[in-house]
Every structure is written in C-alpha cells, then in structure tokens.
Amino acid sequence: MKKLLAVLLLLLLGSAPAWAVLGEHVATVASDQKYLRGEVRATVQQGYSVQQITAADQSVVNEYVSPAGMVFGISWRGTVMPNLQLLLGSYYAQFQQAAQSRVRRRGPLVLRTDQLVVESGGHLRSFHGRAYVPSLLPRNVSAEVVR
C-alpha cells in the first residue's frame, strides 16, 4: 500500500493566496500579499497534507498541515533567506533567541528544543531549511516528512 494517496488540486492564485504560519490554523491566518504571490500546489499524504507555494521569486515554501488544519511544519528553499518572522509566527521569539545566542559557530543554525525544531542552512543563492513543532505532529506522522 503506497503512502501517497493522491495529488488533489493545482491552484493558480492571482493576488491573495492563503498564507499560514507555524502553529496556526491553515484557514484562519491572514494572507501576506506582499510576501507571497505565486502558485499553490496542494497534495494530500497519509495523515497530513502539504501546501507547496512557489513564490514569484521562485523560492519555495512548503506548509505541512494536520487533518485538523494546523500547520505543524514548514520548509523552504530559495536564493535568499525567507522572512522567518512571517513563517514562524509566534515561534519566532524562540528562534530569535537561539540566533542571538550563537557562540563561535559560523554556519548553519540548528535549534532543537521540546517545543520547536529549526534547521537553517545553505549559502547565498541556495538557502534551505525547515521548522516544526513536535507537539503538533499528527498521530503516526514522523518529523521526517517535513523536508
């Protein structure tokens, strides 16, 4: 039995795509029209769904959504670093604290606590990373799906 169930829909959103941030409900989050104008491709996997957004600058953000509509993970890749304040939402402060307490390390950033995992790496022209909230992972879904 294959895990992949179906590719549901391919939407072309012109001006106001729905935009969700980590730890919030996919439907209740106000859109950020400035940040994202692009193509949204939604796929349903076993136990969760993914909204892949290809922004106008060709950067890609994936949102991982639980069956209850909660965004439990995000991932990104692009030429420059994404706006993590937007993507991480209320979890941004935790990330900010980790980013500012760096000692000696000059390179990728890894934050791993019980509440939040953030992995941010790469270089100019090729940044990539992911973030997820362990407590929001749907039942029987591994954190490894967030990639």
């Binding site: 670093m81 980013a99 390179g107 100019l124 940044f127």
Partner: peptide
C-alpha cells in the same frame, strides 16, 4: 540586505 543561514 544580505541575510545568512544563521539569521544574522
């Protein structure tokens, strides 16, 4: 504005 992977 050049952002690095570690957020700086």
């Amino acid at each position: 504005c050049l952002g690095f992977a570690d957020g700086s």
